[in-house]
Nucleic acid binder design. Sequence first.
DNA 1: ATGAAAGCGCTAACAG
DNA 2: CTGTTAGCGCTTTCAT
Lengths: 340, 340
Amino acid sequence: MAKRRRRGSQRVTMGEVARLADVSPSTVSLYLRRPDEVSPGRAEKIQAAIDRLGYLPNTMAGGLASSRSNVIGVLVPTITNSFFSETLETLERHLRSAGYQLLIGNTEFDDSREEELIRSILSWNPAGLVLTGFLHTRKSLSVLANNDTPIVEMWDYGQPGLDMVVGFSHHTCGRLVAEHMLRQGRRRMAFVSTNFQRDVRARDRYHGFRETVEAAGGTVKLRELSGRSHAEETGRLTRALMQDHPEIEAIACSNDMVALGVLCECQRQKWDIPGRIALAGFGNLDFTTSTVPPLTTIEPPRREIGRHTARLLLASLASELPEAEKRLDLGVRLVERESV
Amino acid sequence: MAKRRRRGSQRVTMGEVARLADVSPSTVSLYLRRPDEVSPGRAEKIQAAIDRLGYLPNTMAGGLASSRSNVIGVLVPTITNSFFSETLETLERHLRSAGYQLLIGNTEFDDSREEELIRSILSWNPAGLVLTGFLHTRKSLSVLANNDTPIVEMWDYGQPGLDMVVGFSHHTCGRLVAEHMLRQGRRRMAFVSTNFQRDVRARDRYHGFRETVEAAGGTVKLRELSGRSHAEETGRLTRALMQDHPEIEAIACSNDMVALGVLCECQRQKWDIPGRIALAGFGNLDFTTSTVPPLTTIEPPRREIGRHTARLLLASLASELPEAEKRLDLGVRLVERESV
DNA sequence: ATGAAAGCGCTAACAG
DNA sequence: CTGTTAGCGCTTTCAT
């Protein structure tokens, strides 16, 4: 049944629909875009022809002719991470219901890959572009400058940005955790983190943490994983950390997965949390409510970022976004549970 | 500097490059596609013009003219799930290096959304299509039948499929866990699962588990979450389960996140694992090595699915795939740790 | 090796 | 409300 025409792009064209419905192609086109501007009788015949032939419009032809597209490019460091993937999911939902298609690119925390992806996405003539963070290569910047596509930089806040910004301050996250631990009387602290090279935002959180702790007269030992959060390495690092610095009273982690690794190691070593040691994460992942003890963490506005990014993009596309509303700090919230 | 032409699709065209390089547009086109078929001198001038103007080819125009595209559509139930997202990441890497762009769609475990997405992706005239599983609406099937796009159905195995298949048997996963538990002398079992409606594959694992246990004279109590794995609900369900059926000696979970919830609840209730109760998950997520005790689980070939899906697609696109190699069972592996 | 010409399938004025 | 007429920016024969 299938496989009739090899290399057969779109099988049935608008022209064929038009012929079958006995109207002109432009009427079909109009019907597809603004159905109620076509007389009911013809509309019906056109729809019948479409169904009969199984017609699917050719997006490329449409895009070329109208010189605009319903594509929105989104670049994230990795989709293998519930932070970004939940943002993506929300973004997709909102944008799709407005008729847009996401073109998702994985930069793998690599600026030059981002550059390549920006080019590749721009060549689709996208209606909008969403990037993660403020860090882009000089070349990316110049490509972007030559382009009037609306851009949202998300998941970060605090720098001017290229166009629109939707995020929050990671520095503040670190500060909030530090303040909370200090309040509980802890002074000797450590920060266990995924690799800073991979994740610049983890570094910002670290800086916020360290500055706050030190300003209060405390100390911070840093332990950086070699890559993404890896459970075994986290355990090993934690063990070594506690051996080298048995005085440590609190550990802040760059994210909840790392914190889970630390927590398990503490269970294993019978270091009571929060008696012997306090522990905090970042992300408020689902499991943090159920660990023993439940994990104190930071709730980042993952889905809100998606929602507002979509909103700003759509407003910008409709030229309805005043300059003053182009930057949005969504803020974060400390979730106090029992581990600190 | 920026914002010159509003609604200005592509700023610089191939024609302008051609003019600046003093060649014809078709030579530029040729240079872009097969650089070594133009004379070195002109090639150089063309490249200079491209750089000078910051030319980016218009993908839509190219696609329309050649009536083929470098798009490959991928439909997954959710990207918010490391199973699919790792497959996606791998798939993307392999396909991108072959010059393809992924168009990713989220079906949200909803057949009719899948149908809509299939149409939407097909309208891009994609070079290939990747779907998750075998379950599609009748309409999706008929749209697909009218189309000669290569299709891979992934993450499942055991049915004929539409074209190519890359996956593994979820039924086998359930069986492997059951056999392992039976071997350890357990008979009274339970299966705690994410919602079957959302995840048909979890149901297959359950069936594999149940059939094997019952064939050996054991029993299986089923507890189904109302949605995706939710830590609090998992804890609640586990507590109730153990209260209603204190005789239970082993719990198999539909995935590792659920297992983590159960494990934490057991810690909380001081039910020794595996002494009082054995526990197994599915997924071999990173944290499973570090929990106390480490979690026995099933390793699904997440990244292999991505790799082989890319391989089959590419081979099929090059018409180099014999019928016999269109179906691939990647198998799974039981990872025995200390929780069973 | 290069260029001229003819579209790809659709949209967007415009005229009726 | 409907049809005619031009393209959108590129690729692809086919000559040269």
